[in-house]
Amino acid sequence: MPIHEKSLIRPENLTTHDELVIDGVDVSGHWSTFIESRVVSDYNEKLEDEIAALPGGEQIHRCWQCGSCTNSCTVNAINPDFNPRYWIYLIRMGMESELLRDKDIIWQCVSCNKCTYACPRDVFPEGVMKATSHWLERKGHTEKSPSMHFDEVFTEQVLKTGKIEESRTIRGFFKRTGQSLMQPWMVEMTKRMLRGLPVGLLTRMGLATLVAPKTRDWSAAKAAMQDYIDEQHEKQEQALSS
């Protein structure tokens, strides 16, 4: 089993001396590697409250650092730097600069909810990951992640029509993130998809991309949801700027 926390020691803080004698004891070479001590002085005491003010982060204060989240994490298994337990620790301690070292991967949580299933304290680590990604973006530490673009394209479409027509969402996402739709694997997939399809179904699918499916009498629901989103955004902005 790998030691999960090994990645937490920064390489620049590991020192090995080729020739060093201390008090008559030879400590040269690899066997007596030193970890240099470091001092953190730039605490952000509001960090935990700010994360807790964003949707999903509400229960972060409950964490007792058992590590069940990281241990069960799908993404941790393919990238050991992805460490929810550690990030929750940093947030609660207010160690913002340490957290920012991992700012570009936190959004990669796949929401499989293994952490939430394993958590004995109902912290909802999956929600904390979402809240943290939102916090990073809203504080200007990161660009909007591709995942956030996808969520926004999707939500805009649900608000507009009540339903999702997938090809529209996919095209919207690729356009907003400046990617070409003509990636070889996408082309291959489309080819294979079209292979077995009868003409009637193709026509129906084609029509769906032109005339998006809609929920009828949706405008009042749409307006209500938009008002709610604006209200929440306002509240969150206040929490983030206080």
Binding site: S111, T155, T215, Y228
Partner: peptide, 17 residues
């Protein structure tokens, strides 16, 4: 006349939505 359940994406924007 059903509508989208909100899926993962709307939940990410706001769970209560």
């Amino acid at each position: 006349n059903w509508n989208c359940c909100g899926a993962m994406e709307v939940k990410n924007v706001d769970p209560k939505l």
